[in-house]
Write a protein that binds this DNA or RNA. Structure first.
Lengths: 165, 165
DNA sequence: ACTGTTTGGTCAACTGAATTGACTAGAGCT
DNA sequence: AGCTCTAGTCAATTCAGTTGACCAAACAGT
């Protein structure tokens, strides 16, 4: 169920310029869908779409649940639940912060590190498939331009990545 | 570049290449957040993030609720609820399909047309702000390349735009 | 026509990811 | 000692989406 659409839909697009926002949404969805299909093919069937945004902070080794909540732009309760779900699946763990007994550091487990390795390798696959269409040069312009524009709006920092519409 | 103001957030990004998927997610969020802030500033405070994806099909004049569900890649029940919520707010209406008594056509109300006009004008604003950073030429390459790569993967058609992560 | 099957839509109940609100324990300040 | 702020949790709620049961109109194929 919930098949993705192909040619029947989206009669629009030949007519006039497609807004960048729309293209970014489509690109994001398309990449993330592919990522998770390929992860599943590699045996990771319990990885939710939101897990990806926890893996990188967890690699930092000094991020807390609260940091995560701030970066993702939602409440610490929500972040806590997400982390708990990943903890149950064995991808992350929480270790005490020696300098502050209230907070805990988010860490990858070995299983989580392996997962992150797969994610990165699949991203490389997907991006090289994009490069097959665009050419390496335009591909790197695309990445560079997106990053430049985002940093320009965020005073040098990349913005957070919130879920939902 | 990267004055690395961002110690708290996203400390990553100076180190290695940011995945395209991540950049697209950030770009999408950033544009949509701005859109809704500016819509609110123009008096549209009851517009949900999902409404945008209904306005365009509604303009087509011959799209049904079911068409919408297929394009958005979720169930007709969900599409129906979304349309109902927009109907209650007065942005769309449903008119009978003379050729098939089961189905109804989605149509914009005058209020909905005005909203769509604002959305398009704000997108033009935002895209011209992007062009201030990138230059018009790179901006159009960006749009063109994104569209090209998406069409290549979708056999010529642009993919749907699903919500959620 | 008479069936049987498919299609467009709705009603109702449920799920799950997020929210708000109330709370505890540790830190930090004066 | 206080008084306040911060990190995290527990519990109840909201809300967008789902599944499942259903109906009426459309569309077969005899």
């Amino acid at each position: 169920m919930t098949r993705s659409v192909s040619k029947s839909a989206t009669s629009y697009g030949d007519r006039q310029e497609v807004p960048i926002a729309r293209l970014c949404a489509m690109a994001y969805r398309s990449l993330i869908d592919e990522l998770h299909e390929r992860l599943a093919a590699r045996g990771y069937k319990d990885v939710k779409r939101s897990y990806g945004f926890v893996l990188l902070p967890a690699r930092e080794k000094t991020k807390t649940v609260n940091d995560l909540a701030l970066e993702m732009g939602f409440t610490k309760q929500a972040a806590s639940k997400l982390v708990e779900s990943m903890r149950e699946s064995g991808y992350v763990k929480l270790v005490p912060n020696p300098a502050d007994a209230r907070s805990k550091f988010l860490r990858l487990t070995p299983k989580g590190e392996r997962l992150l390795g797969h994610v990165e390798s699949i991203y490389r696959e997907l991006e090289s498939e994009w490069a097959d269409v665009l050419g390496v040069k335009r591909m790197e312009s695309l990445r560079g331009d997106l990053e430049r524009v985002l940093r320009a709006r965020g005073e040098g920092a990349l913005p957070g990545i919130r879920p939902a519409w």
